[in-house]
Design a protein around this nucleic acid. Structure first.
Lengths: 242, 242
DNA sequence: CGCAAGGTTGACTGCCGTCAAGGCGCGTGG
DNA sequence: CCACGCGCCTTGACGGCAGTCAACCTTGCG
């Protein structure tokens, strides 16, 4: 679905202008291949020294880090178009793991191709950077939520945020989107306990602000929910002409 | 101090190989100029549509975001070599503010130069991306701390983290470093209240793990503190040859 | 001298974590 | 067919870590 150009994975990210045909032709030689991963399986292991990175073509995934004593922080939810595993390649150390939440299709790149992009395909390199900056932005948002918002606000924020991201990836259809996540995952993303997450969620459900069951999410009134979460409506522009 | 090459601001970031002389010569034309900012003054305003971005040459700064109701989340502390304001340029929206913590010297770039870097100076563009990825990494660390660690652990982590970063920037001298921050700032960075931060800090001081007064920080036993904070010693490689 | 900013400390409160028990749906195997 | 276990969700009771309120101290400065 979120994937029209079989050759150029970036073509599908709605944040980008579709690259020209020539671009796609060039990228072809840069791609290693495609990869399928089943739901629940690891895409990236913690602590490994990675040689490849990916673009998420289809499906959803989870990025997290585990402390030595078992506590886990979910860093973000991944949607089609997102990069996976570039950070460890750029920094030389993988400090987090990525796991498939649903059946996933990946576009595989070799680490050597990063430099090729920078030296031979500036547009593509720029897109890469754009993606990283975008990720950083989302991490900042998450930090604000975990640091400052109450459980109720955090949950509201999380749903709105996920909803908007899914919308950008074209995953919101018929007023609903797939959100194949356990409450435990959400709790770990927000720095809350499972029990408290559950209780707070029940309240939001009772108020008809959130409908979420069987991995399907509906937000009857996104804007009302955004107000609960004190979400400021940041506009990330689709494309910058520098 | 953390600044030997007057022409090329990136030369001083210890994460990078020093660029060749030619590189510096080229960058010269890309620079707009230098800028001084007094302690306590804004470097970047929230919500502005920025036309310039900076490299922090000397001094320290604070990046934060304010919610509508006044709560504030400090996203990170900035050290010499760090980029300021690239994210808003890449994404088209500034969602955070940056403020000088000490007298600060900035190297100023124009937004148009971003694309020039990508199209004409792939090495430089790569460094840019490396920086952004690094920032993302630190944000992730912070998120883990705020989400999972107790107040005591968070404080320990924060001090170790700041200590290490300062060390990389050459700011640790004679077993101490400048840390010109209010307890309120630290509290806002960790998602804690001022009072609780203060009390927790007193304990760490009493245990001789942290000495911090008059803007000067000393860690008598960094590794012991790291153990308190459950800090995993991630190695970010200095330079990757792709 | 008085005021402002920041740091410190105590008392009280409450949000949220922990513990524990139970429910539902589903796959497995007797 | 049903028992059983397992994963996940749900709910109640209780306790503690951290937030809030408030007072006071120190330092620097006009």
């Amino acid at each position: 679905m979120a994937r029209k150009c079989d050759i150029c994975p970036f073509a599908e990210n709605p944040g980008f202008q579709a690259p020209s045909k020539e671009d796609c032709a060039v990228v072809k030689m840069h791609r290693v291949g495609e990869l399928q991963v089943e739901a629940g399986r690891p895409i990236l292991e913690e602590g490994s020294d990675p040689q490849r990175f990916f673009t998420l073509l289809e499906g959803q995934a989870l990025r997290y880090h585990t402390l030595e004593d078992g506590r886990r922080q979910v860093l973000n939810f991944l949607f089609p178009g997102d990069l996976i595993g570039l950070e460890p390649i750029m920094l030389g150390a993988s400090s987090h793991a990525v796991e498939a939440l649903s059946p996933v299709t990946l576009c595989v790149f070799d680490r050597a191709q990063v430099w090729k992009m920078f030296s031979q395909m500036p547009e593509r390199a720029f897109m890469l950077t754009w993606q990283v900056a975008r990720e950083e932005h989302f991490l900042g948002e998450a930090l604000i939520s975990v640091g400052q918002r109450s459980a109720r606000e955090s949950l509201a924020w999380a749903f709105v945020s996920v909803w908007d991201r899914a919308g950008q990836s074209g995953l919101v259809k018929g007023g609903q989107m797939p959100f194949p996540v356990r409450q435990q995952d959400l709790a770990d993303a927000l720095g809350l306990s499972l029990v408290h997450t559950n209780k707070t969620l029940s309240r939001l459900r009772a108020e008809n602000l959130v409908k979420w069951r069987d991995g399907v999410l509906r937000l009857p009134d996104r804007d009302a929910l955004a107000r609960v979460g004190l979400v400021d409506e940041t506009v990330i522009r689709k494309r910058i002409y520098l």
